[in-house]
Amino acid sequence: MPSQEKILHIKGIKTHFPVRKGLLRTVAAHVKAVDGVDLEIYRGETLGLVGESGCGKTTLGKSIIQLVEAVSGQILYYEGEQTFDLLNLSPEEFKHIRQKIQIVFQDPHSSLNPAFTVFGSLQDPLKLYGVKTKAERRKIIGDLLEAVNMRREQMDNYPHEFSGGQRQRIGIARALCVNPEIVICDEAVSALDVSIQAQVLQLLQEIKEARGLTYIFITHDLSVVEYISDRVAVMYLGKIVELAESEALYRTPRHPYTQALLSAIPIADLDRKSERIVLEGDVPNPVSPPSGCAFHPRCPKFKSLSEPEKQHCMGESPQLSDATQLTQPHLVSCHYPN
């Protein structure tokens, strides 16, 4: 069970990418990929991060491990009595933190170096974190491969000799080899066939229980997120629009976007056909998001509002706040939630 002990606190993080134009490559605008996200992550939980393509979920994940640089905000990592601000680290601290937070990438075909054997790919982090002899490294990597249901001997094979599911297992083993506390799974099962997807999902669950890990599970597949997560955050255009316990979010979604998203998913169960809310139009361009609430041009509820209420939605961006006042917080960013 997840504890109430915070492990990561994301405060107002913003990640913007410059759009350059013209002969002098001057900055013409910014893509606001992540635009002010607040999030607390507790030790031992699985937080699902969902949204459509371009909503900033991957950028948020990459900002946490600093593969991309955030422009403002704070990410605090708690370890015992110590607190680290991930955006202001000394080189030694940075090396220490890198070990604690690891990532599993989406595409198992492009995330492994084809010129290295599995052992070659996995031994570098071990070298860096002080495993001196080769024999020791071989033992650790062998154990890891067994932990992800592969054979020890397979460490001397090259990536092309493996299937997609096996490569993803190697990706997981690589993330685990430095004993991290937090693992970010960025669409870790999306590229896999359904029968293999179930194997990898179950493996991730087992590893989490055995090692007491915390997962940030980024995906666009809401059925997978429901199965694996304790809490779920829904993102739209760089902001979190709803954050709640997984069960509460799926049973009583408060934000009109979450409702539409859930109703749009085809369900493999003939007995439960839901009324589908079909959203109009596409996700707006994150270079120039709509004024006020970014969702209002597509919002099905917006149309039924009165004129002053519409002005409110168009003028003021809603804050993420507790909608229910129940024991478990159910945060939603909407002026007129359901």
Binding site: V194, S195, V224, Y227, I228, S229, L262, I267, A268, D269
Partner: peptide, 11 residues
């Protein structure tokens, strides 16, 4: 059919 998580069935 048994290997896919189904929306609404929870954890």
């Amino acid at each position: 059919l048994k290997s896919i998580p189904i929306l609404g069935k929870g954890k």
